[in-house]
Simulated assay, not measured.
Amino acid sequence: MSGFLPDEPSAEVRVSPNFGPRRDTLKPDMIVLHYTGMATGTGAEAWLCDPSSEVSSHYLVHENGHIVQMVRESDRAWHAGKSSWFGRTDINSCSVGIEIVNPGHSLGYPGFPRRQIDAVIGLCKGIAGRHEILATRVLAHSDVAPGRKIDPGEKFPWAALFESGVGHLVPAAPVRRGAALRPGDNGADVEALQSMLALYGYGVEITGIFDDQTRIVVEAFQRHFRPRRVDGLADGSTMRTLQGLLASVSR
């Protein structure tokens, strides 16, 4: 990538060899947020630029807010892996990937510093503006790869992004005691749950049976939109939050 100039003016450039051309699309229409899941940001940056890793991201955001661009937005970075949204399975070809330095669940999972989140917000605004990306298409890795991935996780401050004009959110309905759909349940209520998740974009088969895949998708939904309790059970809070999101959608 000779003569690589950053798409984001504030970004440092460190070129990764792990990229290719986008397939079947001229520009991205989605932003996918990740955490690095490694002990240090330096190690994560090196790994994303190592040809043997066969992974990359368009951007890396360090804890202090420093942004590194590794792949041009016009190219296809290798960040999402096996994933889907609205039935599309080549998420790498239609997205910009942002890795956020955080050791993740297996290494203590600390909170995300405000300087880092401010940098993510600014970066997302720039990307969304350049490519006319809708708020509903600023997503978590766990949204597009439920079960396989859980990042950036339930501590990620989606509300701070939303309050700054990034992403799609509604206030999560209060968690209360009461009945919940759970694995083994079946019938019209389960079918309605699966249909609503699919309408929002999640990859879930509409069968009317609350199977393990449905539980995994419910967990992914909760991790992003109702993080107070991530248990995979479709309680009243989960259902009302999902209904509220769908009612407020503008695609």
Rank of each mutant, 00 (worst) to 15 (best):
M1I: 06
L5V: 14
E12C: 03
R14Q: 04
R14V: 07
R14Y: 00
S16D: 02
P21C: 08
D24F: 06
K27I: 05
D29N: 15
V32Q: 08
G37P: 01
A39S: 07
S52I: 00
E54S: 14
V55K: 14
S56K: 07
S57Q: 06
H58E: 15
E63R: 13
N64C: 08
G65P: 12
I67K: 08
A77N: 12
W78T: 08
W85D: 13
G87I: 03
N92M: 10
G97S: 13
G97N: 10
E99A: 12
P103I: 14
G104C: 08
S106P: 00
L107A: 13
I121R: 13
G122I: 05
G122F: 02
I127L: 04
R130D: 00
E132I: 10
T136P: 04
H141G: 13
S142A: 14
D143W: 02
A145P: 05
P146W: 00
G147L: 01
A160Y: 04
P171A: 12
P171K: 11
A172C: 12
R176T: 14
A179V: 12
D185F: 08
N186A: 13
A192W: 02
Q194D: 04
A198S: 15
L199R: 15
V204P: 02
V204Q: 01
E205Y: 08
E205M: 09
E205D: 15
Q222G: 04
P227S: 04
V230N: 03
A234W: 04
D235E: 02
G244C: 06
G244D: 05
